[in-house]
Amino acid sequence: MPLYTELRSPNVHEPKTIGEYADTVINYSGSATSIWAGGTYIMSRPDFYPSAATNVEIINLKDIEELYRIQRNDRFSEIGAMVSLNDIALLGNNIFPRSLIQAIESTACRMMRERISIGGTLCLKGLNSPLSSVLVLLDTAVEVVIPKRRNFTRRWMHVSRLYDKNGKFILNTVFPNALVSKIRIIIQDFDFEYFSTAGKPVCNPDEAVSLAVVSKLDQNGLTSPRAIITIPSMGYAYSKDIDTLLESMPLPANENSTKELFKNIMAYISDNLGPITPIQEARLNGMMKDMVLSLNQNILSL
């Protein structure tokens, strides 16, 4: 007798090791499997429950001890994919770039951060989080477990390879059933860091936008700057062209050069991602002005 008249309760698998995970995912590769980290995003989707079609086999990662490990040396930190965002924020407050901590804090409030895993945040389908783009900016590497029949391999890759050029999550199309198991964040110092986000990426992606910039700074201006703009509904703008624009900007920057920079960035976004909404544009403009103001303050205080 079924539990509910019309509803089949999904089977829940709780592997204890990566090996068990690989076995399970290969065994059920023909069924509709769903891999659960924290589950916050999955459960916030409309019509999640009850649903007859989805979640036939759930693979819950919560018992894989390896995914909770944190290792640190003087060059980088390796963080398991199931480590909560809150733990990363608490651990890394003094060692990680400030922009990363700000991006983590902007993702959700503390109560929610305690239940959101870093791996889950990186693997959101159909939504670009400001956090994943900051990790791209910081040259973060991820370890991916690729299950094979009776075996699995581990491979390190740049976090940007999880996404296509517009920031759409593609890991599972390239490597079916692959699992992000670790995140390696390089410990690095920047003279200038800026992070700002506006709007709610999950609830109202069409109004949300975020900007992150990191760079070395000396009296001549920015050296090797990197900038990334996240448009949650469309993808992210991360390009050498934008970095070059920033590097060539005379500092302290005046209103005209800020306008010019913004114009060029908008042209890049329009060419590569498509048109963004007027409020996203206005907010990005506000962020640019704010970033340049902060940059000017930094350069003048050198």
Partner: peptide
């Protein structure tokens, strides 16, 4: 309790435990 494994805790508490203080149901809309 015998419930569907993916049933949200809020629904479980409301329907299967009859908790009265959970009066809203945003179904995950935060």
């Amino acid at each position: 309790l015998n419930v569907s494994s993916d049933k949200p805790l809020s629904e479980l508490l409301r329907e299967d435990v009859e908790i009265k203080s959970l009066s809203t149901s945003c179904t995950g809309r935060l």
